[in-house]
């Protein structure tokens, strides 16, 4: 915590302002449609941040993360529909289930390098979708095959995770995002983070330095899958209707990977910036071109990805960080220096 607060005052001040702004946002924006778009931006930033634990730090490219999001959505929903269990508990159960499935998938696949891991995860993600589309019922749980599940509408209440207005959804996902970003920060600045990065970049060298690379990758995978599934439950409660193609398909997996790659994988803010840039594109193409050209947003994502990879291979987080340094931190430091005379600037 000390490290986190050990930043330049200007950065702390701006972060505090930004956070404050985020928390009063629902008071300013009254349109539920706009609020929905903003909630989805935050949700995608959250989902991509959970992806980042594996895709950003463990040096592999997972392209089937929707499998775990789907597990979260289906678990909490069927438990509520069948037993009336609060989605909050279902969320945790879904998370644990996804973590177990993630571990089972990760054990054999995390040893694969590069494209092979990506292909294996695509196969698993797609396999999961086909499975859910072809099963109508598992024991007492109705999952309705390809037509999906509509959630029973109940009165607005926290325990039932259903609300009349958009604001509560916004606050819930915003807090989830902030917590996962905080977790990312602490992981990056810990032994686990260093070992993950080392194992991702040069596994042989990492093992020679005493790192059991496979175990650290598995830890990242389990954390990532658990958190992704929580996002799945949130998605279900927000939309109140989902079907295999909406939550288990390749579209969702790819969109998350696109957001991470364009934003900057392996960084804290990359997924947030990526979601801020790409979600509006996705929404606008869906609204204006959805009827005539469905899936156009993925083509646009592809074009943006090519451009970003060409000019900023580390993602847009890189130029943005440079801009912030140049226009906010440096001018401020200069002022401080001239104000405090010759005192050396020890910050950073």
């Amino acid at each position: 915590m000390k490290q986190l607060l050990d930043q330049k005052p200007i950065v702390l001040l701006l972060s505090a302002l930004l956070l404050g702004g985020l928390f009063i946002l629902p008071l300013v924006i009254t349109s539920p449609a706009l609020m929905q778009i903003i909630i989805l931006i935050v949700l995608y930033a959250y989902l991509t941040s959970t992806w980042n634990f594996v895709g950003g730090f463990a040096g592999v490219l997972p392209l089937g993360h929707s499998a775990f999001i789907g597990i979260g959505a289906y678990t909490s929903t069927v438990l509520m529909q069948t037993f009336g269990l609060s989605p909050w508990f279902g969320m945790i159960i879904g998370g644990l289930l996804a973590a177990m499935v993630g571990a089972a998938i990760g054990l054999p696949t995390l040893k694969l390098r590069g494209a092979y891991f990506a292909l294996a995860t695509i196969a698993i993600g797609e396999g999961m979708r086909v499975l859910f589309e072809n099963v109508k019922q598992v024991g007492p749980f109705k999952i309705n095959g390809p037509s999906g599940i509509s959630l029973k509408l109940v009165e607005s209440s926290f325990m039932d995770f259903q609300f009349d207005s958009k604001a509560p959804y916004y606050y819930i996902i915003l807090i989830m995002l902030l917590l996962v970003l905080l977790l990312t920060y602490f992981m990056m600045n810990s032994k686990v983070g260093y070992y993950l990065a080392a194992g991702g970049e040069e596994p042989e060298a990492a093992e020679a330095l005493g790192i059991k690379v496979a175990r650290y990758k598995l830890i990242a995978m389990v954390i990532s899958c658990f958190l992704a599934a929580l996002g799945g439950t949130f998605y279900a409660q927000l939309m109140l209707y989902f079907y295999p193609k909406s939550i288990l398909g390749l579209d969702l997996s790819f969109e998350i990977a696109f957001i991470a790659l364009i934003g900057g994988r392996g960084t804290i803010l990359g997924p947030v910036l990526g979601a801020l840039l790409l979600r509006p594109v996705s929404e606008l193409t869906r609204i204006y071109l959805g009827a005539s050209l469905p899936g156009l947003h993925l083509i646009i994502f592809g074009l943006v990805l090519i451009m970003v990879m060409r000019y900023y291979p580390a993602g847009i987080v890189e130029p943005i960080r440079n801009l912030i340094n140049k226009y906010i931190i440096e001018p401020f430091n200069k002022e401080k220096k001239s104000a405090e005379g010759s005192e050396a600037d020890k910050a950073d």
Binding site: A198, E204, E207, A208, G210, K212
Partner: peptide, 22 residues
């Protein structure tokens, strides 16, 4: 395994250097 060997107290370097480049 290599990581166990390292924990025993043997560490190696590589002929072709393998820094964590980024």
């Amino acid at each position: 395994k290599p990581y166990e060997i390292c924990q025993f107290g043997i560490t190696r370097t590589f002929q072709v250097v393998k820094p964590f480049a980024s």
